[in-house]
Nucleic acid binder design. Structure first.
Lengths: 143, 143
DNA sequence: CTCCGTGCAAAGCATTTGCATCCAT
DNA sequence: ATGGATGCAAATGCTTTGCACGGAG
């Protein structure tokens, strides 16, 4: 398994993306978050924190950063939200209650996907799976 | 598990939905389709076929019909698309190439979901799973 | 020095909503 | 008759785009 642990903030140029104050701010804002953020949310957070950045810049930056793989994007209630990827796993478990996103154990999925493909002929995109449900905490809280 | 096998076109009132010319037209337009349609597409199709129906009516009707379980809705490229449900299975395989939607063999998923839940504590919504990939035909065509 | 990236404001678009009218029950 | 359904048009809200300026490499 190739580790692509996301560089703290740096090495953007290595991926063909210029390092700018705005992009660094966005990456920083997204770092450590388990919940995804929409462009608007990121913009609000940044400007609220004193940063000077345009909304369209946020949209463009998020799009670009997702494109080069530094961010993952999700469809949340008709809006697009982004989160830093903690690892190379692109198989996510989305909690519809609290918004938490966790990684799905790859081995657990891969075997199943193989079976699914063999059985149905359908070739699933193993590198982009979003499964909705309730996270462990919310499940426990509901009891 | 409650059976909600979709009545051909009829018995709308039984579900608490009034039978109107427009809703029947929408259901008819959607019948037999393997690919989902957006509200705009449905509206275009209907008006093109000579029906008199407002766009907002289409939006409202689709929303309502999906609500009562006669339709399934999907997120396709940032737009909402609808399709009649051929059965009670709400586990779909979406082809990102041709747009085809097929049902996923329930038994195949259920076992896996159980395992997933046991392993991670995450409770997946077993009745609403959309898996992206390439359908059998598109997979074959790509070789 | 060259372009990529940014900001601002205008434009795009799918979807929603207000309100008067209409029709299914 | 009565409340849900419809149509039209205006409004909403997220996202994109045009264009000139600024900063990274």
């Amino acid at each position: 398994m190739t580790e692509t642990a996301p560089p703290a903030d740096a090495s953007l140029p290595a991926i063909g993306v210029r390092t700018t104050r705005q992009r660094q701010a966005i990456l920083t804002a997204l770092t450590g978050r388990t919940h995804p953020m929409t462009a608007q949310a990121v913009h609000t957070a940044l400007t609220g924190a004193g940063h000077r950045i345009g909304l369209s810049t946020v949209y463009r930056a998020l799009h670009r950063l997702a494109e080069v793989g530094l961010l993952h994007s999700f469809e949340v209630g008709g809006e697009r939200a982004y989160r830093r990827c903690p690892d190379t796993t692109h198989q996510h478990l989305l909690c519809d209650k609290c918004g938490l996103i966790t990684e799905c154990p790859p081995h657990l999925v891969d075997a199943w996907l193989t079976e699914l493909r063999a059985t149905t002929g359908f070739t699933p995109h193993a590198d982009r799976i979003d499964l909705h449900g309730h996270c462990a905490d919310c499940t426990a809280a509901a009891r």
